[in-house]
Design a protein around this nucleic acid. Structure first.
Lengths: 155, 155
DNA sequence: GCCTATTAATAACC
DNA sequence: GGTTATTAATAGGC
């Protein structure tokens, strides 16, 4: 069970995949929003957000500062999200029996949504040249709003 | 396997605990740095960093801006961290057989470190009035440094 | 919160 | 990157 020091790389990749899967399951099955950032020992960065890094980081956002950063369709995303939640609750049983080729609920939802390119899995993976600036902007928004929330609590 | 809609709360708590455990295992066993933020459906915020939220967010940091935010002992933390990694590698076998009351490697390390109040589990849990400002400052630092890194890649 | 039957994660192997 | 023996996560019930 303990990873051999020789297989550190393989173990990291597998466990990172497992962790991200857990993130998605928590988000999908429990209606939570999850953001995770992982730095490998070698220094590579990986990130995942569910539903989407931005949607998670946008949680405290009220849209008054650092504007023009969200690509578009903030309310559309939210509506699609809520509709998905509603659909999931209403037809959970049917979905469970319909799709037989997938073994687990987690896999079902994840795979289905990956195929359909829903809001899900429009996530960040392996922050690269293109993603980093956007991630930075999202963090900027999160920072501002967390701070605002903190001030609200303090007052 | 699919959580009942009635037990959504319980499932969320259990899965959040599991997710955070996975985070710690990834960090400890693979030498990675992990930060995770989770918002429950009810809107409660939970966060975990391993090693410590700040240490993760500090990764790109070179200490030139937003100074005086780290409580203290930046280098001390790093040294303790590296020493722990070294110790783990050197005595993995012994540790594994010594502590018999714990069933898993993950539990072993986590529990041991929780008991010893190492660098580990000085983490954020359920962001509250006291933690939020600090979290905001950490995010501020991360934002700045991610952005700097992004600019570096772009140039 | 603890227990247990079940399922999923994963370390080692190829 | 696929397979399998083993361990861990966890849903449901208490």
């Amino acid at each position: 069970l303990r990873p051999d020091k020789n297989s550190r790389q393989v173990t990291f990749s597998k466990r990172r995949a497992g962790l991200f899967k857990k993130c998605s399951e928590l988000a999908i099955l429990c209606g939570a929003r999850v953001a995770a950032v992982v730095f490998s020992e070698a220094g590579n960065a990986f990130a995942l957000g569910s539903p989407s890094m931005e949607a998670v980081l946008r949680r405290f956002d009220d849209g008054n500062d650092a504007g023009a950063l969200v690509p578009a369709a903030e309310d559309d995303d939210r509506e699609a999200l809520e509709e998905l939640y509603r659909a999931r609750e209403a037809t959970a049983e049917q979905v469970a029996s319909e799709i037989k080729r997938m073994n687990t609920i987690g896999d079902k939802v994840v795979k289905a949504q990956m195929g359909r390119r829903y809001w899900w899995e429009a996530d960040v993976e392996a922050l690269g040249e293109a993603e980093l600036p956007e991630f930075a902007r999202a963090l900027d928004r999160l920072r501002a709003n967390v701070r605002r929330h903190a001030d609200k609590l303090r007052s």
